[in-house]
Amino acid sequence: MDSGFMHQLLQQLINGLSLGSIYALIALGYTMIYGILKLINFAHGDIYMVGAYIGYVCTTIFHLPFLPSLLIAMAGSAVVGMIIERIAYRPMRNAPRIAILITAIGVSFFLENGMILLASPQPRTFSSEFSASVYHMGGLVINSQQIIILISTVVLMLALTYIVNRTKMGKAMRAVSFDADAARLMGINIDRVIGMTFALGSALAAAGGVLVGVYYNSIDPLMGMAPGIKAFVAAVLGGIGIIPGAMVGGIILGIVEALVSGFISSTFRDAAAFAILILILLYKPQGLFGKNVREKV
């Protein structure tokens, strides 16, 4: 009984870790874009969907191997992200916050319904060469996809950390998110930095999309809605605007969801994410990694 419980717990932790990696990848884009524009980019979950579809086309129609497909999906989604920013968000820079939020919702609907028109609402399955080879380790089940997800996520996060901390563009991004006006005065091209942020965030979300396609084998035009919102929860959990926060937040959320569906009921899985959201907002709205800021009177 006891070892059964431990076994179940470990198994759910493994499942949660791979699910959480996906959330983390999406959450990173959320947090970066929020940090720089103070915009909840509701369309971000749909970029993840777009990435999954590009990945689907590459692997299933053109029979490309995993890695090139992943890179093409990331590049393609980065372009889509930049186009969205250019057309829908840039003209709204000085508009009321609610108007930008509505625009983001509009973009989200557009991507979802555009994809329904383009690819039909039916779910698509990734080609079977990615179906699981299952490893048994001391009674635990780990499949090859979970390993691919974990490795890809770790590599991508390291790459992102390098870009943000070591490159000139990364420094510019941090400067803009700290104080856009001051950054502009320092000669930083704000528009380029924002475009780059969308590109990076979108590429990460696309990677998440392809990985999910490989993991669950099935994608559909509305697949971005729920993970999109949950990734935002993850970003808030870690402290919005804070990159390591999004990583940790995503992982925690994934693990909690896996534990809830493993030990309570899978129908309450989604409620768990929102319950975490409410609790964190009420008790630590700045997130796990955030600093407390008070309004100056």
């Binding site: 829908a88 709204m92 509505i102 625009t103 609907f109 557009f110 329904i116």
Partner: peptide, 13 residues
């Protein structure tokens, strides 16, 4: 929904 979403974006712009 596609028309609806485009209308929403255009209105906000």
């Amino acid at each position: 929904m596609l028309i609806y979403s485009v209308a929403m974006i255009v209105l906000m712009l």
